[in-house]
């Protein structure tokens, strides 16, 4: 084969091999590492999978935050004003977590319909609302009226 063609062939083979590797890595990386957002209404309606990582967002119900006396366990209810789901979290909550405020929690739904949260994200300024929560609230408001 002509040396220039041979070199081109090798370049093409290399690019092919490398991109296969990259796509493989991406596919592997995505497996189990992405999670879908569900508003409480969908969770109560049984649309969310059990035992898989999901995210849920809404407002923290006033007066629903229960802290354990002897550990860092916290329980609170999240609502989109159409339905309410209880979440349990063990650890330190973010500073901006508060009753009556927007929150996004990531975790796994257990058999009792309780979200065992591994991460709690609160909004980070007085005007900001995570887009998912804003939309979920809008939807439930629209459905309610």
């Amino acid at each position: 084969m002509h040396p220039v063609r041979k070199q081109r062939l090798l370049v093409v083979l290399f690019i092919l091999g490398f991109s296969t590797l990259a796509v493989g890595l991406v596919a592997y990386g995505l497996r189990g590492n992405i999670n879908l957002f569900f508003p409480p209404a969908d969770i109560v309606a049984g649309k969310a999978p059990l035992g898989q990582p999901i995210r849920m967002g809404g407002m923290v119900v006033e007066g629903s935050v229960i802290r354990s006396e002897d550990s860092l366990r916290v329980q609170f209810d999240v609502t989109d004003y159409a339905a309410t789901v209880t979440a349990v979290y063990v650890g330190i909550l973010p500073d901006l977590f508060a009753e009556g405020q927007g929150v996004v929690t990531a975790g796994v739904l257990d058999g009792q319909g309780v979200l065992q949260a591994s991460e709690v994200l609160a909004k980070h300024d007085e005007n900001y609302m995570p887009p998912e929560v804003a939309e979920a609230l809008q939807k439930s408001a629209g459905a309610g009226s």
Partner: peptide, 18 residues
């Protein structure tokens, strides 16, 4: 397709080997 989020494990899984 719904609201997904991609977490750090994805990025670590692709970035670190590279």
């Amino acid at each position: 397709q719904g609201k997904y989020s991609v977490g750090p494990p994805y990025f670590n899984a692709v970035f670190v080997p590279l």
